[in-house]
Simulated scan of single mutants.
Amino acid sequence: MEGRIIDVKGKKLYIEHNNPFEGRPAIVFLHDSLGSVQLWRDFPAKLSEAAQCNTFVYDRLGYGKSYPMLTHERPVNYMELEADLLNDLLTEMNIDNAILFGHSDGGTIALITAAKYPERVKAVICEAGHIFVEDVTLKGVYDAWEAYKTTNLPERLQKYHGDKVEILFKAWTETWTRDDYRTWNIEYLLKDITAPLLFIQGEADEYGTLDQVEKTITQVSGSAEKYIIPHIGHTPHKEVPELVLEKATAFIRENS
């Protein structure tokens, strides 16, 4: 799939858009806090083929092949701002029948986008997203910071993010562990989600408890279902891709 850089309100983002299925929705993939287009690997292509949908994948600003962030300092509402930018991006690309598939931070951004821009979103698949901060989340972030200092994690990330690694890693870890971020919560937005929702989570997710799932699916206004996978951690689409593909395909076919 050919990729390119586009300018969205002054932000230069790397995108890949594959549009083989005329008249079908586009699955928009939203990566996690250390992710990128490349790190999705072949999952978008496989889901596209199985669900007979088009795909749209992009690197958030500061990630992958997109242009760098100017600073690692983020406002508390940075994911709400990411949702606004996603709306601008989808407007630029003339995508108005999006099925959002977001992982971790990307899952949260998917929920916020569905709440704020319901006319654009056909369905939502939220994988391991967060709607509030938990102690287990902070432990996961601190563990990742320790790994960054003591292992070859920086070098592994550099393969995907180049010289942007230090800023994006600080942007993630320092934001989530700031005192003023402890009260971050998007539950107030959930009632505005009317699109069908599938929430996927590993039962052993090291970044969030099943409270994230339950409190989400019980507060949205549209139909919602959960898919909890035993013995699986924070990245089900990598740990058990065949299970996630099967469930996501069935959900998309039912809601498109």
Rank of each mutant, 00 (worst) to 15 (best):
R4L: 10
I15A: 05
E16R: 13
N18F: 14
P20N: 13
P20T: 07
V28I: 12
L30I: 08
S33G: 15
S33Q: 10
Q38N: 14
Q38P: 01
W40G: 01
W40V: 01
A51V: 04
N54F: 10
N54V: 08
K65H: 06
K65L: 09
Y67R: 08
T71P: 01
E73C: 05
V76D: 02
L81A: 10
L81F: 03
L86G: 02
D96M: 13
G102S: 11
S104G: 14
G107E: 07
L111P: 13
E119T: 13
R120Q: 14
V121I: 15
V121C: 09
A123H: 10
L138Q: 09
L138R: 13
G140Y: 06
D143P: 02
E146H: 13
A147R: 13
Y148N: 03
N152I: 11
R156M: 15
Y160N: 10
T173A: 04
W176V: 01
D179N: 09
T183R: 07
Y188T: 10
L189F: 06
F199W: 09
G202H: 11
D205W: 11
D211W: 14
D211K: 15
Q212A: 06
V220G: 02
S221P: 00
G222C: 12
I232H: 01
I232T: 06
K238R: 14
E242W: 08
A248T: 00
A248S: 00
F251Y: 01
F251M: 00
